[in-house]
Design a protein around this nucleic acid. Structure first.
Lengths: 399, 399
DNA sequence: CCTACTTCCTTCGGTACTAAATTTAGTCAA
DNA sequence: TTGACTAAATTTAGTACCGAAGGAAGTAGG
């Protein structure tokens, strides 16, 4: 409804990104998906074709009317670099336009070192230098809250970072656009492009693992809240007033995460003797898999707690669907024994049937999500990415 | 960023609504508040002035540069009609552009009668007929979920309504635009125009009373969720696993509302002997006011539960501020004894200081909120109001 | 083969906005 | 009272989109 103005070529770059991430598409399909009129798509693609960015491909068979002419990118070479920062390493991947991982690697990293940011910059600079193809940009996922993707100022207690200038430092180091976001939001961005987001426009991406997180996608855009802190469901208070609440990494006690985050599970299991005093989460999972009832109970109770908390989140946000991700889903069948009953039971009648998809987890998913930040920026009409998104769009060929 | 097209004169009607609700304003201030360029405001106001809808008023003193020229509406006459439907009556008010209540009334109403909707239609038709000035539209607030303001299909268990065709029937009956929404959302709309929304663009409107509700405002727009069911925080599960959870009106058990809604409070108080078996909520409040410790404890515990649940909501939504409203705030000082400690204690460090405003409550506030739906529709760029908003805008003189 | 219909795409004219430059109207200091 | 400044409003010259209407390319039925 507004006009135009160099807010940054949202439409042309959106078309390019769409063709890159979803493959050849007809003009009308593009129009439907991006919410544009066919007329606009014709105009813009005409220009893109003239500039050699896009080409016409074969026609599709026709379903009743004039057959659609597919459009595709002339050159699909080019990657996005994604990095996920953790307490002891940085995982890095390169991702092609269609979401496939080209290469992946890992670097030791101490976020509490005095020169941590410089070191991170050197790691990424090296990765960038090793590439021999076009780089659209760098995405970084951190376990903490980020003011905005475009600036990239990070508060991450688990890394010991407070107002860390991640974005500015990295932009200085690598000469490309750099987008920074909360790690869960990066997964939400990946889902947006390559997962559930293709079929739904409003969903939750819930992660279980070390912490419990939640990315909120509304109308195709990541919802970040007033201060970039939305979705911190790991810190929903759930403690039972009659017991001593366990301490949480956030400094408070009785948070959901303190019970059912990786550390919480292990603590509970040890406390009950389901695990020896040196037992690990992997051990708990093995025990459950081998039929150990007490181990399974630990999981089931965690699932129960998660189910209740998530029902509350669904009542406040009302998404279409929920996606479950994270290291923790490995043991989902044991979680689920407690989750399903408590989750469904707690939902309002109108929402009893909200679908929950549990996706298999792979190691490089975090970093891949970070890379998705880059490729998702053309779709980011809310403007989370600001200037950096503009630069990415320019690199996508939609100058 | 898009173009134009008869999506319904958002800008001119937005300017008119702004002048109506906030009083005389300069062009540049309008531009800032509506997110437009000064050029656009100049153009549009020129047209409005030429059409006699808007006029130039005096200048303001000047703060360094050219003094701003205030613009105001030529005629500020005209009202919006608001109706709030409850289980036993319909409250109706007429509201002027600036938010002041011109008149109010109440009608007996049985929502479970076979001809309930027709009766509601007759009530409103009569009210409309009694008016002797321009009517911009009718807003209706219902305690339930509504598919969209524009259509107005209602599910409201407490009224016994299932897919009730409130919008269509009323539009048929009264010949004006009719907007229908969840009652809490109507309060959020009123806050948007006349309350906290003038200073913040992202906040929660939490109501305590018979039920517990929450309106979510994001970037100046009411967030309704995928199915119009966002903000149902009254049904967040909070029961303590070691006790028998109380039943809730929603059919489930252990919902927040079952504990701290009006009925829940009374049940608890009776169970503890803080109230006789025939005691009412008003009695509980009197007891607390007169210093009764057991009554105060009932309130404080409710406050504690609310604080914990609300902290969870804040972690997932991350609003700037929270506004507390509803019949229940009458006894807020007793709630607060339990609320403050538990609320603050449960918040993440970064959000410990989120402000909570408790506003005084008046009887006609629900109906006034419903009327606000009408006057808020010109600001509704998300398009919740659809066709009905268009009609309202046309009546505001911005044809 | 012709006609009707469907779907995809394009052309055309118009509209609602914008940024940038400019004009207007005031303050303040010397 | 002149000049430097600031802020408000306007003018100008675009731009990015849209709707409506129509052309293009197929299918389905006669």
């Amino acid at each position: 409804m507004t006009g135009q103005s160099p807010r940054g070529d949202l439409v042309p770059s959106g078309i390019v990104a769409m063709l890159g991430t979803r493959g050849p598409t007809s003009r009308t399909a593009i129009a439907r998906n991006l919410g544009l009129s066919p007329a606009t798509v014709t105009q813009v693609t005409k220009d893109l074709i003239a500039r050699g960015v896009v080409e016409e491909l074969e026609s599709v068979p026709s379903n009743g009317g004039r057959p659609a002419r597919l459009l595709g990118l002339v050159s699909r070479t080019g990657v996005a670099l994604g990095a996920k920062v953790t307490a002891d390493h940085v995982a890095v991947v390169t991702v092609e336009l269609d979401g496939s991982v080209r290469s992946s690697g890992s670097h030791e990293f101490d976020p509490r070192a005095a020169d941590a940011l410089d070191r991170l910059g050197r790691i990424l600079t090296q990765e960038v230098a090793d590439l021999d193809e076009q780089l659209f940009g760098v995405g970084v996922g951190v376990p903490g809250s980020v003011d905005s993707q475009a600036s990239g100022i990070v508060d991450a207690p688990t890394l010991g970072w407070r107002a860390a200038q991640v974005g500015p430092v990295l932009r200085q180091a690598v000469g490309t656009p750099v987008l920074v976001d909360n790690d869960v939001n990066t997964l939400a961005a990946a889902e947006r492009l390559y997962g559930i987001g293709r079929e739904h426009s409003s969903y939750l991406v819930v992660t279980i693992g070390r912490g419990i997180g939640c990315g909120i996608v509304v109308d195709g855009g990541i919802y970040r809240g007033a201060n970039g802190g939305a979705g911190e469901i790991g810190h929903i208070p759930v403690w039972d007033p009659s017991t001593e609440p366990p301490p949480c990494t956030c400094g408070s006690t009785g948070c959901l995460e303190a019970y059912i985050g990786a550390d919480g599970l292990v603590r509970t299991a040890r406390g009950r003797g389901a695990l020896g005093p040196r037992g690990t989460l992997a051990g708990l999972l093995r025990a459950a898999a081998s039929g150990d009832e007490s181990a399974r109970t630990v999981y089931a109770e965690a699932g129960d707690l998660l189910g209740r908390a998530l029902a509350g989140v669904i009542h406040t946000v009302d998404p279409e669907v929920v996606v479950l991700l994270g290291e923790g889903v490995d043991g989902w069948e044991y979680w689920n024994a407690g989750f399903e009953p408590s989750f469904r039971r707690s939902l309002l009648p109108a929402r009893k049937a909200v679908p929950v998809f549990v996706e298999p987890w792979t190691e490089d998913q975090w970093a891949r999500g970070a890379a998705s930040l880059v490729l998702a920026s053309p779709f980011d009409s809310a403007g989370n990415g600001g200037e950096q998104s503009r630069l990415v769009r320019a690199r996508l060929g939609a100058s």
